[in-house]
Design a protein around this nucleic acid. Sequence first.
DNA 1: GTGGCTTATGCCCCTTTGGGCTAT
DNA 2: GATAGCCCTTTGGGGCATAAGCCA
Length: 958
Amino acid sequence: MRTTRNQAKRQPRSTGGEEETKRPRLDLGKQKCVDSVDDNDTLAGISHEAVGKLLKRFNGHGSRGSKLQESFINRCDAINKLESGLKKKEKQTADECSNRNITESSSLKEKAEGGIPQQATDDDDQMDEPDWEEGPVNNFSSGNDHEEGNITIEFEASPDTAKRKAICRASAEDKERAELVHKVHLLCLLGRGRLIDRACNDPLIQAALLSLVPRQFLKISETPKLTARSLAPLVNWFHKYFHVRLPSNTERSFESALALALETQEGTAEEVAALSVALFRALNLTTRFVSVLDVASLKPCVENNESVTKKARRTRRGIFNSSTLMVTTPDVVSGFPSREFTSTDMDNNNMCDVGSTKQDKWPKRIGDLEFEMQLEMAKAATESGNDNIDRESYQMKLPSNWLTGIRDGNGYHKTPFGPYPGIRDGNGYHKTPFGPYSIPSRMSLKEMRRIRRVETPASQGISVAIGSRKVGAPLYWAEVYCNGENLTGKWVHVDAVNAIIDGEQKVEAAIVACKTSLRYAVAFAGNGAKDVTRRYCMKWYKIASERINMKWWDAVLAPLKELEAVATENMLTRQEGLNKHEKTETIGMLGQSMLDCTSGPAKSLAECSIENSYGVSRSSLEDIELETRALTEPLPTNQQAYKNHPLYALERWLTKCQILHPRGPVLGFCSSHPVYPRTCVQVLRTKERWLREGLQLRANELPAKVLKRSPKQNKEQASEADDYDEGDNCGLDTSLYGEWQTEPLQLPHAVDGIVPRNERGQVDVWSEKCLPPGTVHLRFPGLVPIAERLKINFAPAMVGFEFRNGRSVPVYEGIVVCTEFKDAILEVYTEELERRNAEERRRNESQAISRWYQLLSSILTRQKLKNRYGDGSASQSVTYAPIPNVGSDAQVSGEKDAAKQTSKSQPRKLHVRKENQQPEIADEHEHVFLMDDQTGDEESSTRIKRCHCGFYIEVEVL
DNA sequence: GTGGCTTATGCCCCTTTGGGCTAT
DNA sequence: GATAGCCCTTTGGGGCATAAGCCA
């Protein structure tokens, strides 16, 4: 209906521009590459020529011709504009040409001169329909891809159509779909975040990372007052050690990807950030993995365009994500030993197991054998672990020639993962989580990486200056809880990828600079998650409309939030060196299960939350902090941001049904407009609307605002007023009142069993508040006759309106009676209901009995017929095979006819014949009438059924 | 590049309380 | 003549959100 109205609205406007807008494809008789277009051969010229020929043919068609002429002129205008746009784009000729789908059609000329006019003559409406037009063209040649003859040109887009591009207006369905996609994407990203969080807890990864960390960082968790400053050296070391590379297309589990990143010291930003989280956790720092959920847009139109922009963005992000981007192709990883692997070798080595076919082709050297032994030892060493690490990824980490130990300048033994401050075994090797091994003596890792860089051809990858530092959209980072920050401690932002500490205020700007939106920043820990967007988003009003409704989001995060709170508290407990017993004594609330909560899934969340109220309270502190940020958001600098700002408002952006009350305090100014708190904005309603809310106006209240009606409405109302000779326009404006001008509705009480009614003799039951005191609304059908029978006063209950037959019709549901009659009416109603049910049951039973009687009578009649004719001269027993459709009717008809025949001796309708009678089988034969042996006469509505013995029966089809 | 302003467009809220004809 | 039931036809004005363009 609305569409119809809107369509009706659009119709007057749709003759010109819209037609052109909806006509992205134009067929021209001729097309040349723009650089060769001259005045005579321009698109417009070609079109005019073709159109002119067509118009000549239309001149004899009267008004139709003029319509067509107008239509074609419009199109020619569009073509002119197209061409002008094309001229401006001369330098982009090649691209323009490639964007047009130019096809040859040798038959177009004939169609153009004959087909289109014929179509138009047939139906004018079709003039607006086809996207393709056909026309005669001159022969030309315009490029390699074009041949002589008529061609059809399809314009995907043109410079000029951008102006008249159809505005993308999402329908409600599109919005709903986009919201669903948004939700599902959010859930997927939450799942991925939890997966990464789990991988960060992997003991093998953590142990390997510990093996790399310089000794001075191992005691960092024992710092009494951990601050962001104290984290700086560790973060700097990590940042120098691990590098970001472009994401590869290789599909592997995150754990194995993480392991590979650990080995190669390169990974995606996600992997490197996860490694930093794993390292911090390995060092007993309370750490969360934070991810910006780059989720599909809530806006359908954005989504369509996003595919292109996101690709570009992702490419860009891929580049800029590298803090020190020194890699070439995504598949190429560095950090391998000096063996002269080619890039292909490297890929294969990464992708395959050590014992793969590819590797078997290489002759095993001593180092290889030793390497395999190391692998076996590593397997044995890690077998008892409960990790989910893809061990294959570890297997390829330990190249064979990294076997002899080397000391670095600091006295650490270097491992493929860096110096490991482990235990020296009897053979002088350092033990690692993978068993004892040593590192290559031939060259240092730095040397190897340098060689890798040099070896990499520049043409293979993106040319990025070595050492150049480009900060891209930070989508992943860590949050480390620093008890030395503030009074109560603080979650400190640690972006090890970009070596930024405590830079929470920089995150949003960096993300926005990369054309990404910080809509959801979620912190993961202990398989849980918590929305920490507030911490990083300084301009909430910009993202608020891009987020899903808070109710749904909070419900999704609620269980995860509890898990996260418990897990971080566990980490804090470990970090603070408090054992479980001490903690219980100190807090008096923590139980044994607290420590097991994250590892013991059988434990219910409720139990965990009760037992870990200490952790929850700490989490609550963070909630308060985030809420405080929300309430102290700085004033936006642009006016439009105040339109739906949750905290602030400008008077100019209030709707007609809003007002400032009280008018102050002024919080600031934006473009010289005073800024008020949003709490001062009050909603205004008419008196009637307040009544629906169960509120009535106080006495002598003046309207807070008076809305002038539209001139049309005034005119209509005035004419009605004239009809009644009122001559008074005072009621034409709409008076609006605020809630502060109202009081609870005071309807007249029901007295003496009489329900007070409105002027229409009914009670408008918009809500329970609208019921007169002492009355009750009974919402059951069929109560009116009962109330009348009991002589109880009642009023119909109008519960709303519905539009029917083009007009609004009141909807009544039940009645309103005085409270004292409620039980009496309900009692009678129940009895009435039972009586009706019993009556219905009786009716059903009697109907069933009647049908049984009919059935038995039929059987009896049939048996009589059987007895009579079975013993008669014909000596035939008749059996009716089940015949669909006509079977029952025919059977009954046959029986009835047979009965008639017996009673009245009128065998008119039942004709029994016997063809080629065979007496020898007649006594024992039982006739069977098959469908295939039937013939019918539709005029007489009769059907002849035949038995294979030759016996047939003619029946009447009812 | 950003913000302010205007314009165009479409979704969606708000409004609101029938009447003529025919069979019984 | 009174009454009950059926059927007709399927609002539309305007606020508001939003996209896009223009300009400073």
